[in-house]
């Protein structure tokens, strides 16, 4: 009697498990499908976005070569270089601003500390690009919206207010024991030495996190780039380029190349992201364990 009940309970569990795994498989398919679709489209030989069949008839690499050779209308290699330069500089600036602000807010006590944190919160509630038009006017008034200076303007846009995004790094610094700082002060360290010689070496995960997220930013933003670049096609970043490929006049010729470009910029970001996952989960866990 008892054995039978256990058996039926076990059967129910097996049935549940099978159902759940099927459900997961279906969901996983839904989530992976668009990704597969892009990869497939990037190798598709037929042009255009409107297709009558689901699977491509023939595969080709031409979409990729077109991206790098056909530079008359949409100069992809140039956009790539623009974005790379912007990404490198804004990454350096953002990392410095964000980490130093986080350090000050976490390790030092000064009168403007709370006001600064409240200000960051209030500024964060305004719609981000409400001020974008104004930023454009300001950059124009200083003469940063012409020629190559646009890149500099974009770097400023991406990293200028990086200090407002101090929360994650500050949360991380907060978990480093203050006793370490006190010991260092007794040994004659200045605050600057504590920052560079103690806090930073203990905070590798959060440095990597900051560097990578700020590096990815310019690759995936296109609203700011569009407003700042306006009609200066030679300053376009990859994101605007990809966006333009889907405009009505280009979509027929460029749709498959759009997919190719999307795959190209997704690969590095995907690799970074998969490695970053764990910071997403334990982004706020501490530097010094147990």
């Amino acid at each position: 009697m008892k054995g039978e009940r256990l058996k039926s309970a076990k059967a129910a569990r097996v049935r549940n498990n099978i159902l759940i795994h099927i459900l997961l498989a279906v969901l996983a398919f839904i989530w992976v499908f668009p990704v597969l679709w892009v990869i497939m489209t990037s190798f598709r030989a037929e042009k255009g976005s409107y297709i009558s069949t689901f699977f491509p008839h023939a595969f080709t690499l031409a979409n990729y070569t077109k991206l790098f050779t056909d530079t008359t209308i949409l100069n992809f290699p140039r956009m790539f270089m623009n974005t790379l330069i912007i990404a490198i500089f804004s990454c350096i600036m953002t990392t410095f601003f964000q980490l130093s602000a986080s350090f000050c807010l976490s390790r030092m006590r000064f009168k403007m500390r709370k006001p600064f944190m409240n200000m960051a919160m209030i500024l964060g509630l305004f719609p981000g690009f409400m001020s974008m038009v104004a930023v454009y006017f300001i950059l124009k008034a200083v003469g940063l919206t012409e020629g190559n200076l646009i890149r500099f303007a974009l770097v400023l846009c991406y990293s200028g207010s990086a200090a407002l995004g101090f929360q994650i790094a500050k949360g991380f610094f907060d978990t480093t024991p203050f006793a370490i700082d006190e010991a260092a002060t007794l040994d004659g360290c200045t605050k600057w030495q504590i920052f560079t010689k103690i806090t930073l070496p203990l905070s590798k995960p959060i440095i990597i996190y900051t560097v990578l997220t700020s590096f990815i930013g310019p690759w995936v933003d296109f609203i700011f780039a569009k407003v700042i670049c306006r009609a200066n096609a030679d300053q376009y970043t990859v994101a605007i380029g990809l966006w333009r490929m889907l405009e009505k006049e280009y979509i027929d010729n460029w749709y498959t190349s759009f997919a190719a470009g999307a795959v190209l910029i997704s690969i590095p970001i995907a690799i970074l992201f998969l490695n970053l996952q764990k910071f997403y989960v334990n982004g706020t866990s501490g530097a010094v364990k147990g």
Binding site: V35, V220, L242
Partner: peptide, 10 residues
């Protein structure tokens, strides 16, 4: 997770 590795705008 692989789906959020593709940039959101893409």
């Amino acid at each position: 997770v692989i789906s959020c590795a593709v940039p959101m705008f893409v």
